[in-house]
Amino acid sequence: MTTTTTYNEAAVCVPRAGTLYDVLELILDRGMVIDIFVRVSLVGIEILKIDARIVVASVDTYLRFAEVCNRLDLNEDASSRTVPELFAGMATGVSRTGAKRAAKSVGGKVKEAIGAGDDDDERDEDRYEDTGDRYEDREEEAAEPRRRRTSSSSGSARSGGGRTARGTHRTEEG
């Protein structure tokens, strides 16, 4: 069975089945072409492609990255402090945790703003399916196990010691 598994800092996500999000350009741009065949109209597909992607190179993203930076406590002004003192400051983990949380919420906002992420399939439908199609497709989707990403244990970020507690919640795909 074809699945998509996401591996990121927080966790290894449960594989998701039956989504187009990550294979759209393969179905549309790869595969064999025979030049005497014609191709059906792909009107609207460009919007679908853009909509499904996280657009990193945008001013909005830049501003949010800058906001994250501005919240960082790099002890810039503590020029009189010794290196061990700086180190001790970091080890409390307070600033690290705060920054991490900020970075995460920014990531979430970016995805939300452009409609990417877990809800992309439903959005595809709203836009591209005829009204009569929606009911059945949604029903099919509801039947799939659509478990959301597993969250990492909250203790891992707070320890300040990195990611010893990385989630390993990947289950076997069936």
Binding site: T2, T3, T4, T5, T6, Y7, N8, E9, D22, V23, L26, I27, R30, G31, M32, V33, I34, D35, R163, R166
Partner: peptide, 23 residues
């Protein structure tokens, strides 16, 4: 490389990318 990259692995897929190009 958890600090640097997020990975998404999809498969098994039909071999779209390994067919003769343009017949």
């Amino acid at each position: 490389h958890a600090d640097q990259v997020e990975l998404r692995l999809t498969g098994p897929l039909p071999c779209y990318s390994f067919v003769p190009q343009d017949g």
